[in-house]
Nucleic acid binder design. Structure first.
Length: 566
RNA sequence: AGGGGUGUCGCCAAGCGGUAAGGCACAAGAUUUUGAUUCUUGCAUGCGUAGGUUCAAAUCCUGCCACCCCUGCCA
């Protein structure tokens, strides 16, 4: 069966129950197309968890040739700020999702929603209630007992309409009246006990200013917005599961048309050992524990982006977790890191950077430094090569030389040999000590017939290490990061709720700066450019970099398979 | 008079009456001028539990048990 947009339904392989349901709906005429929506509340920065909501909303629509609306769900004037709306657009673009349109619910739909409310009043489905917030709460009943009906519940539609218009016109003080849905105060689901549809609050709104003094509430406004923009599948997280029945009630009583949206829920991703939650992140920003919302240690999208994670890695990760069956699914951080490494391995240019330099003098090499070739990506020939230099004075990692090597150590030892990546095998003849007893430098000789790619010596050498030549390197700043939260706090949000002070959970010195020696070709790198510093890890250029002062963020280390003593 | 959910390997997760996919993690080997990547192999006589139906049950039925969410004029 073919859709109007040309998609052949019979060729689509459903990957979860929702997709099976969509196919059935489409085939049996319950819906005509797939329209989803992304409804963020602009009250904080987006973090990795949100990426799941968009990936699901955008990609299921895409799969069926549908579309996705980006809608700022800004019905609460006390919480929202314009600052955030802009950052969302950038995040979305970074992830590669294109909404078919972008609206502020407050501007686009509030007039219509108001009319729907009036219609519902006329139909006897809503009433103006004079109970205070405390009284409403007290009469709602409990988990096991029914609630009590409001004394104002049986006002006539005419009176309700007059009162509601007066509410809108500002005749009543904040909090003195609400518009409530007339559902069932004895309903076993508490969300059905006459939920509030509108409240009175004189608050300046960042988009619509002072146009309104009454504000529609989520349970009412959300389904209505979905209906108004033609959403067919309203995909949200399982936190809203027991609001589905309310959603359906409002769709029926407020909208009541043939093609109506369906709410379906997926599970939230919670990363182990990662602190999320606007409140807490804000606390860390304000307290100066991090440099800002885009600190590379932050789980915000702007943060991980600055850290060097790729959009593909995040989407692949989110998809690997799947739709989910519980409200939240706790996933170890390594599950995310796998996808980060996988993507970076594919795209990152290899470079030699010495993080802790040890000087080596090649005593039998004289004259001009020699050019050597380094592959930009051994797994991808099309990435090409770049030139490096080998010369009389070079630097290797301190770790790559040992006076007391542990078992299975394949790197340089006194009297031993090691291969220099892309260059020659060298032999360490002498260790020169400084007066303080530390190693000052090494004296080595190179074996001229062992040139990389051209080795005629037949010498086998267990280890290969990276290096930079004195003439081919410059100093750069490296920023290494530890997890913000100490490893023992697997679910920091819960620990916080249990009373553990945030300061106690924070890792000390989670940001460490050092200086390294990098190959000269790195001088032309631009912010967000990604590299693999061979044998070390993935790094990207930080936005604070200037041509005179390059800063690299450590994105993630390479896996280290070296197990000494085994 | 409670309602809504969920229980399959350490963590995710397929499975929809025909004899337990896959991924992460972990372990062992091979290849490697990155101790990376890649490759190969191993990793649930078991599906919360007790019964029942059936030639056959993770899948169907019944009863238990455990865990999560819900009493905002937040979303």
């Amino acid at each position: 069966m073919k859709l109007e947009n040309g998609i052949d339904l019979d060729k689509i392989v459903p990957e979860n129950e929702l997709e099976e349901e969509i196919i059935a709906d489409l085939k049996e005429g319950r819906s005509k197309e797939v329209v989803t929506r992304c409804p963020p509340e602009p009250s904080g920065y987006w973090y990795i968890g949100h990426a799941k909501a968009w990936t699901i909303n955008f990609e299921t629509a895409q799969k069926f040739g549908g579309r996705t609306v980006l809608r700022m769900d800004d019905s609460n004037p006390t919480k929202e700020e314009g600052e955030f709306a802009d950052s969302y657009m950038a995040d979305l673009e970074w992830l590669g999702f294109k909404p078919c349109k972008f609206v502020y619910a407050s501007e686009e739909y509030f007039d219509e929603i108001y009319k729907i409310a009036e219609k519902m009043i006329q139909n006897g489905d809503a009433y103006v209630c004079d109970l205070s917030a405390e009284e409403v709460s007290a009469s709602r009943g409990t988990l096991t007992e029914p609630g009590k009906e409001s004394p104002y519940r049986n006002r006539t539609p005419e009176e309700n309409l007059r009162l509601f218009r007066e509410m809108r016109d500002g005749k009543y003080p904040d909090g003195s009246k609400t518009l409530r849905a007339k559902i069932d105060m004895a309903h076993p689901n508490i969300n059905m006990r006459d939920p509030v549809m509108y409240k009175i609050a004189r608050q300046h709104h960042y988009r619509v200013g002072d146009k309104w003094c009454i504000w529609p509430q989520y349970d009412f406004v959300h389904p209505m917005e979905d209906c108004l923009e033609g959403t067919t599948y309203s995909l949200c997280d399982k936190g809203f599961q027991d609001h589905r029945i309310v959603y359906e009630w409002f769709v029926q009583h407020g909208w009541g048309k043939k093609y109506a949206p369906k709410q379906r829920e997926f599970s939230r991703i919670v990363l182990e050992n990662v602190l999320t939650g606007k409140r807490y992140l804000k606390q860390l920003v304000k307290g100066g524990y991090v440099s800002g919302w885009d600190d590379p240690r932050f789980p915000t999208l702007v943060g991980v982006r600055r850290r060097g994670y790729t959009a593909k890695a995040i989407k692949d990760f989110v998809k690997s977790v799947g739709w989910g069956s519980t409200i939240e699914v706790v996933v170890p951080y390594s599950a995310l890191e796998y996808y980060v490494r996988e993507d970076l391995n594919r795209i990152a240019t290899r470079a030699m950077v010495v993080l802790n330099p040890l000087k080596v003098v090649i005593t039998n090499f004289n004259g001009k430094p020699e050019e050597i070739e380094i592959e930009n990506n051994p797994n991808d020939e099309s990435a090409g090569k770049h030139m490096a230099l080998f010369g009389r004075e070079i630097f290797i990692e301190q770790d790559d030389f040992s006076l007391n090597p542990p078992p299975k150590y394949n790197r340089l030892v006194e009297g031993g040999i090691v291969r220099l990546k892309g260059a020659y095998i060298i032999k360490c003849n002498k260790v020169i000590f400084a007066e303080n007893g530390e190693i000052d430098h090494l004296e080595c000789e190179y074996l001229p017939d062992t040139k990389s790619g051209n080795d005629t010596s037949g010498i086998k050498c267990k280890g290969t290490i990276h290096f930079v030549a004195k003439e081919n390197c410059f100093e750069v700043t490296i920023r290494e990061f530890k997890n913000l939260i100490k490893a023992e706090y697997k679910t920091p949000a819960k620990d916080l709720a249990d009373g553990t002070p945030i300061e106690e959970m924070l890792e000390e010195n989670s940001l460490q700066e050092s200086t390294a020696l990098a190959e000269n070709f790195l001088k032309s790198a631009k912010p967000e450019d990604k590299f693999q510093f061979m044998r070390k890890g993935y790094y990207c250029v930080d936005k604070d970099s200037t041509p005179d002062h390059m800063i690299f963020n450590s994105t993630i280390s390479l896996k280290d398979g070296f197990k000494s003593g085994k």
